[in-house]
Nucleic acid binder design. Structure first.
Length: 430
DNA sequence: CCTCATGATTTTGC
DNA sequence: GCAAAATCATGAGG
């Protein structure tokens, strides 16, 4: 609309400028007659009303050529006019005052909250933001979100997830680059056009700025779409990843061995401390919560059916016994009197269990945990008190924990391989 | 396909 | 919040 205030656009100029930016807010409304090259030249004959269309057309055809020439001449004359610069600046001023004031409200673009959300999410997911490492961060975030905490080097799905995320990231960035490039190209193109036009019509610098911002807004809308679809892709990937994690997969044999070792060697009190869990998790290549799950399941299932697990228990007991006899651990000092001390119980005393847990198995078989316990068994009566079901002195916590546990378990047979399975007192077993 | 084993999740009690 | 118990869901073996 502002065009009209400026009077008729110069020939050929009416369309070029603002019309380019198709959806300009406020409407690039062509002024009536703006497209008529002869509109201002006065060459257009009046009396269009009652003539035949054919006649009109014919006239227009002939007149247009005529008026174009005329317009060229006028344009030249105008450009050479000594008052032109002054006139130009005045026109610019008027235009600014009128045209821009209308849009002033639209000028300041509020930060789109949705865009912010998308940006934040992409950042959090590691799609946007700094290169590399983002993937693992995102995976960690995903893991955290799933409530588990996953060992970062573990699963196949994990690397799969990361690679997929990297893929998305790559696509996102290349698309973003493309958009940016296109935006820049388009902007310079428009700027050039405007500059070109500024020779023939008043184009204030502010108008150019506005145009640029309009273009940027348009392109940022496209970018937003890109971000949105990227977010969706990430969400889908994530949900798939989480679903995949949900799928049960048996632990490795070695992991089960390690866990069982610990379980049967701490049968009187199979409640690993946080540190012990962490060590076990590290050893088994699983998460701490998985360790917790495992022990939870193990305890309940063992208790429910001791008979069934007896064989297993004996196997591990034998193992521990063997590992003791040939283990070469000649620790005779401080065998960590189990459970006589208050809180920790056998494995809570970090000096004992954890230290052993931390020791890598000599030959790859990580039996150190059981070695500790076995060592304890073979050392002094204090050690036996723990596992032989004699007078057990549990810490308050153990008491609580074993409230249900000690009734069913602490079988004397388990830790002494010489005894048969029959000796289990399965008072609570079904 | 059925059954069992087993890891994970949910519910419940403390 | 932790552990027990129940339950779900899936993998593996027959």
């Amino acid at each position: 609309m502002d065009e009209r205030l400026l009077g008729p656009p110069p020939p050929g100029g009416g369309r070029g400028g603002l019309g380019l930016v198709g959806g300009e807010p406020g409407g690039p409304g062509e002024p009536p007659g703006g497209g008529d090259p002869g509109g201002s030249s006065g060459g257009v004959p009046g009396g269009r009303g009652k003539q035949d269309i054919g006649d009109i057309l014919q006239q227009i055809m002939t007149i247009t050529d005529q008026s174009l020439d005329e317009a060229q001449a006028k344009k030249h004359a105008l450009n050479c006019h000594r008052m032109k610069p002054a006139l130009f600046s005045v026109l610019c001023e008027i235009k600014e005052k009128t045209g821009l004031s209308i849009r002033s409200s639209q000028e300041e673009e509020p930060v789109d909250p949705q865009l912010m959300r998308l940006d934040n999410m992409l950042l959090a997911e590691g799609v946007a933001g700094p290169e590399k490492g983002g993937g693992s961060a995102a995976a960690a975030a995903a893991a955290a979100a799933s409530g588990g905490g996953v060992s970062p080097d573990n699963s196949i799905e994990h690397s799969d997830y990361r690679s997929k995320l990297a893929q998305i990231r790559h696509i996102y960035h290349s698309e973003l680059e493309k958009y940016e490039q296109a935006c820049n190209e388009f902007t310079t193109h428009v700027m050039n056009l405007l500059r070109e036009q500024s020779r023939t019509r008043p184009v204030a610098p502010k108008e150019m700025e506005r145009m640029v911002s309009i273009i940027h807004r348009k392109f940022s809308a496209i970018q937003m779409q890109l971000k949105q679809s990227t977010c969706e892709a990430v969400m889908i990937l994530r949900s798939r990843f989480l679903d995949a994690r949900r799928k049960r997969r048996n632990f490795s044999k070695q992991a089960t061995e390690v866990l069982n070792e610990y379980f049967y060697s701490h049968l009187s009190n199979p409640y690993p401390s946080e540190e012990a869990k962490e060590e076990l998790a590290k050893k088994c290549g699983i998460t701490v919560s998985q360790v917790s799950n495992w022990f939870g399941n193990k305890r309940i299932r063992y208790k429910k059916n001791i008979g069934k697990f007896q064989e297993e228990a004996n196997i591990y007991a034998v193992k521990t016994a063997v590992s003791v006899t040939q283990g070469g651990h000649s620790r005779t000092s401080s065998p960590t009197p189990p459970s006589s001390a208050g809180s920790g119980g056998s494995f809570n005393l970090s000096g004992s269990g954890d230290m052993f847990l931390g020791m890598p198995g000599l030959n790859g078989d990580s039996y150190s945990a059981s070695q500790v316990e076995s060592l304890r068994h073979s050392m002094g009566p204090a050690g036996y008190g723990d596992n032989l079901g004699g007078g057990q002195m549990y810490s308050p916590r153990e008491m609580r924990a074993n409230g249900g546990w000690q009734e069913a378990v602490t079988p004397s047979s388990v830790t002494s391989p010489t005894e048969g399975p029959g000796s289990v007192h399965s008072d609570t077993s079904n």
